[in-house]
Design a protein around this nucleic acid. Structure first.
Lengths: 159, 159
DNA sequence: TGGAATGCTGGGCAGATTGCCCAGTGAATA
DNA sequence: TATTCACTGGGCAATCTGCCCAGCATTCCA
């Protein structure tokens, strides 16, 4: 499950230049093509690499506003609330977190005004007692994985 | 900037089966290869599709614990705090949010015990006054974009 | 110490895909 | 009406993929 240094270099390379193929990657890493192929197969069956889905920017889709909402859930309504939130396209992710039966979700909206509509839609459900929303202003560190991969592969011996 | 229905179908297709190429995508969508090629070029230069980076699972890297930390920042220390957090590999993303000069960051750790180390590292910095952490227990809706893409492409006329 | 795995190398092969080009067509626009 | 634009359907050479193989070094274990 742990990744070695070669795995780390491969993932970082793929992250930086996703369109390169197995052959080009093998050239960059200085190893045989079969090695890269085997590593990628292993990383994917390990679940380390879930896939290579397109990284879509909600802002470019017309949803430039991001917010995080903390929801307080009525006892025993968790499953219903999850099902409800799963139907709202603007809910990009949902977590249950420690504390008073709470949830945290990431929302997007077309504008600050539109965010109100989204929040109404989210909280307009019986199981949700209260919601507190924090609007994102800047995103100094966009979702990233490279530093963690480098750290994880340094912990192991070099590959 | 808005995407039409064909764009939407293309993105959804790529999201579901990232490894298919332009040719196969054109077959699935029932359009000419050049069309798919042109759409993908446009989506990428638009910034709608940022890239095709590998989707790495932190849990599989040995970081199964996720948490969200809300940080209270000392006036005027924002830039320093950002720079500090950017150096911490376990900080996967960082947002500045509305309210008392606060930030919200997503953390991962090797264990609950390790999370303490990460938090100490995060808050062990002069500009940070206080931190409140919520540990993620479940993730009923993992980060997703498909529903939003479908909604955005339905809003436009069919393509 | 002698196997036996395991992982990497370097190579070959047929088939598929890519990047690039072209002319023709239909629709929307000026 | 003339022009622009996007899409079609096709062709081409170059490249890459998926799959196979034998050889070699290292590690692990009896």
């Amino acid at each position: 499950m742990a990744i070695d240094h070669l795995d780390g270099r491969l993932i970082v390379l793929l992250a930086r230049e996703p369109r390169i193929g197995v052959l080009e990657a093998s050239r960059r890493l200085g190893v045989a093509r079969g090695t890269v192929q085997a590593r990628m197969d292993r990383l994917q069956s390990n679940g380390v690499i879930r896939g290579f889905g397109p990284d879509v920017d909600p802002a470019a889709l017309g949803y430039p506003v991001t917010a995080f909402a903390t929801l307080e859930i009525k006892q025993g309504q968790g499953a219903d609330v999850r099902a409800h939130l799963a139907t709202v396209a603007e809910v990009l992710e949902l977590h249950t977190i420690t504390g008073h039966g709470d949830m945290l979700c990431r929302l997007v909206a077309r504008s600050n005004a539109d965010l109100q509509r989204v929040i109404d839609r989210v909280v307009g459900f019986d199981g949700i007692v209260r919601a507190s929303t924090a609007i994102v202003m800047e995103n100094p560190v966009p979702l990233r994985i490279i530093p963690l991969v480098e750290q994880a592969s340094d912990d192991t011996g070099p590959g």
